[in-house]
């Protein structure tokens, strides 16, 4: 800690300039809910801490024609309570209610959560299900990437050392599209033992499933899509039978490891149960 410098950035440009100069020696501090404990334990020892918490340009929730754009510094609590979110993407408000405690939600940010890339994070599977895109900015320009491609390994993302995550761009739900997020944790608002983000779009005439994304968190190094389970559902009418089969497929295609949260065998059980629950809830259209 004694060799660490600290800069409080006022603008995105200042952030990217700093990153350009210091690269992976620098670490971005947003809400501090993940990084500060690591600093405190001296497990993380960056040479420079760039505090972006005052960068006003990264705090917004805006509706465009087809999407909601959310600034990376938006706090979990804002996401939980914002009227635009509640109206258009209630899945996110639901997800936030299950994420840690109000105190943490008041400080922790959406961007911080994604960039910390805890494989048990709740935000990622929900955003993956929605097909969200991330805007990454560096001194030399900006690029866009889907959330699905963002995560590389435990706590590792595709973000380059000179980039900052600026914005999350989420497509609005189409008519007849439904998205939900459910999780299991031992004390209700704990680290997820499993989290499932689901998106289903049904055909108006045939009631068959046109599009489906089943995104599972906390079962591997990165949140993943249960593609074999999706294949069971895609193009079919969602019934008790297909749901049961999809649950089985998901259980087969995902190999969680045992840890303090639960054994691999227990997590396998949960995968089947939660894929089924997610499909049931999303296909019944209880939630838009």
């Amino acid at each position: 800690m004694k060799d660490m410098r600290y800069i409080r950035a006022a603008s995105v440009t200042e952030v990217t300039d700093c990153l350009k100069k210091y690269g992976d020696k620098a670490k971005i501090l947003a809400g501090g809910q993940s990084l500060v404990p690591l600093l405190r334990q001296r497990l993380a020892r960056p040479g420079l801490l760039i505090d972006i918490s005052r960068v006003a340009d990264l705090k917004f929730i805006r509706k465009t024609k087809n999407t909601l754009k959310i600034g990376a510094l938006t706090t979990h609590r804002q996401l939980e309570t914002d009227p635009l979110i509640r109206e258009h993407l209630p899945i996110l408000a639901d997800m936030e209610k299950q994420l840690a405690s109000v105190q943490i939600r008041n400080l922790g940010t959406l961007g911080g959560n994604l960039c910390h890339a805890d494989p048990a994070g709740d935000v990622a599977p929900a955003l993956m299900a929605l097909g969200a895109k991330l805007k990454l900015i560096s001194a030399t320009g900006a690029r866009t990437m889907s959330v699905e491609n963002f995560f590389k390994d435990f706590f590792e993302t595709a973000i380059r050392p000179d980039e900052v995550l600026a914005e999350i761009d989420i497509p609005l739900l189409p008519d007849l599209g439904h998205a939900i997020y459910i999780k299991h944790s031992s004390r209700g608002v704990d680290t997820a033992i499993i989290g499932v983000g689901t998106f289903i779009l049904k055909d108006h005439d045939t009631d068959t499933c046109k599009e489906i994304r089943l995104c599972v968190g906390a079962v591997g190094p990165v949140p993943i899509r249960a593609k074999n389970a999706e294949a069971v559902i895609r193009g079919k009418v969602v019934t008790g039978k297909t749901i049961a089969e999809a649950g089985k497929k998901a259980r087969e295609e995902i190999s969680p490891v045992s840890d303090l949260q639960g054994s691999a065998e227990y997590k396998k059980e949960l995968i089947e149960v939660f894929i089924q629950r997610a499909l049931k809830a999303a296909s019944s259209g209880r939630r838009k």
Partner: peptide
Amino acid sequence: VTNPNLIDYKMPFAIN
């Protein structure tokens, strides 16, 4: 001890 912290050692929260 594999869980010597209050993240992995789970005490009840107020909501519990």
